[in-house]
Nucleic acid binder design. Structure first.
Lengths: 89, 89
DNA sequence: AACTATCCCGGTAATACTATCCCGGTATTA
DNA sequence: TAATACCGGGATAGTATTACCGGGATAGTT
């Protein structure tokens, strides 16, 4: 296989990422947030709903920027509760 | 258009990202770094050479982790010198 | 010199995925 | 009724990720 399909672990991490971003958005509207981050509202919605598991670095960085999130914190957060029995992926 | 091609600005940012990662790698071999980050050596090479402009968030995060880089710093660095004449992307 | 090993490079190719758009559907609020 | 906000599904253009091929450069060995 040339490109491996997403592993269940990656899918779950994507869902945690989406949930984290949605919580951080709080009361701000999806549309306003997406426009501020210069991404399409559809894209933000798919990421928040966890339907996009591995978004681009620039996409997440732009959204995190708008929401005032640290990328390091985001990365650490979504990797919690998964690094239990994970040595080699 | 459904998915817009990469803008020149995005391509240049990808090149700055690659250059930054390569500098941070220092004397460590590409192979060892890629294995430690659990990505393919081919992928790391393409990112470092700037041939992949918008890699996945998890890919960059894993590499930055191995190299001891802060994602926030990386993001700030590669956006320098680009935000001069950029209004809307 | 010749051989070997390691490292990096560029191109080609195949597959899986993202980013975006469009459509309709639901719920809330005025 | 209308407007706003969120939610799927479907479709499409373009990209990332990976593997394989050969090549060049360097360093160590025999």
């Amino acid at each position: 296989m040339v490109r491996l399909p997403l592993t269940p672990a990656e899918v779950e991490r994507g869902q945690r990422l989406g949930a984290l971003l949605r919580r951080a958005r709080g009361e701000r509207s999806m549309l306003a947030t997406a426009l501020a981050a210069r991404v399409s509202p559809e894209t933000l919605r798919k990421i928040e709903s966890g339907r996009v598991a591995t978004p681009a670095f620039a996409t997440i960085a732009a959204i995190a920027d708008v929401l005032g999130l640290s990328l390091d914190v985001v990365w650490a957060e979504i990797n919690r509760a998964e690094t239990a029995g994970q040595r080699a992926a």
